[in-house]
Design a protein around this nucleic acid. Structure first.
Lengths: 341, 341
DNA sequence: CTGAAAGCGCTAACAG
DNA sequence: CTGTTAGCGCTTTCAG
């Protein structure tokens, strides 16, 4: 019932605990014969090192926190996979906490993680600046933070991993134009997250270049849920603003918008083509399936985990920014003849 | 930089560490004045108890594992919320691991959690019997397991929380019939999970009762993804089996099926009504929105966490089975006149 | 090559 | 009411 300890082995073999420890750790100064005996006994008695004791000894908790804005979409779950692929192997536990797009909940989550004594935190934030001071404090107190996806304003010197938002947004805009779209709506993300401004800028640059930019088509939203997508496009229709396509900040906005259009009897992609940024199964779970910029989420997670371990192992190591490459995937939601309408 | 310890406070105030400890823990025998001084100093020096030390002292890790079959849908995320709502408050960390519907990965996950020295495990399993022996071993070694949603065959005496699958499936079948459906397909879940057989039985009972049961309409699937839903309905169409509605084991099967039908130009719900079991945002993220049995996922999580804590605190406490109440929500996917077709 | 002893940070008898 | 001591399980000097 009670787990076997070093002391148990020590009694069992009439050896000191230090010898047992050395044998188990494959230390230099240990008689091969002794080592063998110890290993056998350990095996027999089902010895498992007590991780808590090790943690105390080494002054680590061997756990890290992952804080994400939402878990309605599988976005974070995919990132988690990457993180775990890297960290579980080296004995690290990951504790995931969801902020529900609220900077205040994010605060609570970070505070909780500090109480949990995590060795580090991987964070996808809710608001570019709101909690900056807290991030700084936490890091000063000795817990490194690595950011991904939504990163903080550049006042902070931190490691982060992002994708090439501007370029991919540009390419997606080009794609829409190449299929004959002229009135391209952009459903913007929250102005408080960097990706949103980057994607909007990419979109705008291309539309300007083609001489079809119209500020009326840059639509502010009030969040990133299905509901927000629906509201935004409802508003457009109400205002009577004509459009033949939508490029949304996220899957969720795109899907919310698309479903509302379908509800109104508007055909996708024939009357309105739709696309967005993704990297999750969500884009293929609707009909028509969404064309989207697929982000390498698992890789993002692995990269973030790697950067975090660098910081944990050497707190003075340089901060690094990794820019990963996303790629466009064309699906049914933008599949129409290249002619107009 | 280095965290403040009891010893630091002890030096600072010239008191023994035990007095400090007592003051902080609000023990009986402590002079109010001393207590005040200690509390102030602790505040000032930013003292935070070292959880690892506490864990070692109390012989706990203050962490539990949550093992789930998938994270593509927000099902598990919702359950996680409930678990955390209960456990984070009492200082428990939860470590979530995903089995990807593979019993072997589930084994790995459980093994990893044992290595992590978790105090208990909450498990939504992949296969009713495959890992039974392992569950028993883990519990024997002292780590309690509580099951939810998909529970093991009844050879095991364990706490579990489920919903009233049979009844709800029956009610959903009645609903379809009340809207005029006569050829109701059931997309079955894996025969290796209890809920699947329960839901199928509920469906069958009602169809038999109404004299419209046809074994051809009980369709086996090869999994529970969008793809499996699509394959199943594709097969039905190929075989030329007529049907006017589908009741699916899960959201994902229903959505996969629905999207394929829409792709084929078949109208939902006019030509085929669709519904399923859910409890997540997925059912409202498609068009038309899915009628479904909404399970109280957060409550499931809370209940499971509560049952687990019972076992952690007293390993000899009785196992309990909680049956929660789900409820039907009617949405667009089954909204048609009550007449035929 | 092995053992004794100290210590990671904390709590809880046990004395006083 | 406070201090001393021991101990949770493990590693690592330091002696031998």
């Amino acid at each position: 019932m009670k787990p076997t300890t070093l002391k148990d082995l020590s009694r069992h073999l009439s050896l000191s605990t230090s010898t047992i420890s050395r044998a188990l750790l494959n230390h230099k100064n240990i008689h091969p014969e002794t080592r063998k005996r110890v290993l056998e006994a350990a095996e027999m008695l089902g010895y498992q090192p007590n991780t808590t004791a090790l943690n105390l000894r080494y002054g680590k908790s061997k756990s890290i926190g992952l804080v994400v804005p939402e878990m309605v979409t599988p976005f974070s779950a995919n990132v988690l996979k990457g993180i775990q692929a890297f960290l579980n192997n080296i004995g690290y536990k990951v504790i995931i906490l969801v902020s529900d797009e609220s900077p205040d909940t994010e605060r609570d989550n970070l505070t909780l993680l500090e109480r949990f004594n995590v060795d580090g935190i991987i964070l996808n934030l809710c608001h570019e600046t709101y909690n900056q001071a807290l991030y700084a404090q936490i890091m000063e107190r000795g817990t490194p933070i690595v950011f991904f996806d939504r990163i903080p304003g550049n006042a902070l010197d931190v490691s982060k991993v992002i994708v090439n938002d501007h370029i991919q947004a540009s390419l997606m805009a080009e794609h829409l134009i190449s299929t004959g779209c002229k009135r391209i709506v952009h459903l913007m993300g929250p102005p408080t997250v960097r990706n949103a401004t980057e994607r909007a800028a990419g979109y705008q640059r291309i539309l300007v270049k083609h001489g079809i930019f119209d500020p009326e088509l840059m639509v502010k939203t009030h969040g990133t849920t299905f509901g927000h997508g629906k509201e935004a496009v409802k508003e457009l229709l109400k205002k009577g603003i004509a459009f033949d396509s939508i490029f949304a900040f996220t899957d969720t906005l795109a899907i919310g918008a698309m479903n509302y259009l379908l509800e109104q009897g508007i055909r996708v992609p024939e009357e309105v083509a739709i696309c967005s940024f993704s990297g999750t199964e969500l884009s293929t779970s609707v009909f028509p399936q969404l064309s989207s910029v697929e982000q390498p989420l698992k890789e993002m997670g692995e990269a973030a985990a790697r950067l975090l371990m660098d910081k944990i192992q050497d707190s003075s190591s340089d901060s690094r920014t990794l820019v990963l490459d996303a790629k466009l995937i064309y699906r049914g939601s933008t599949a129409r003849g290249s002619g107009k309408h």
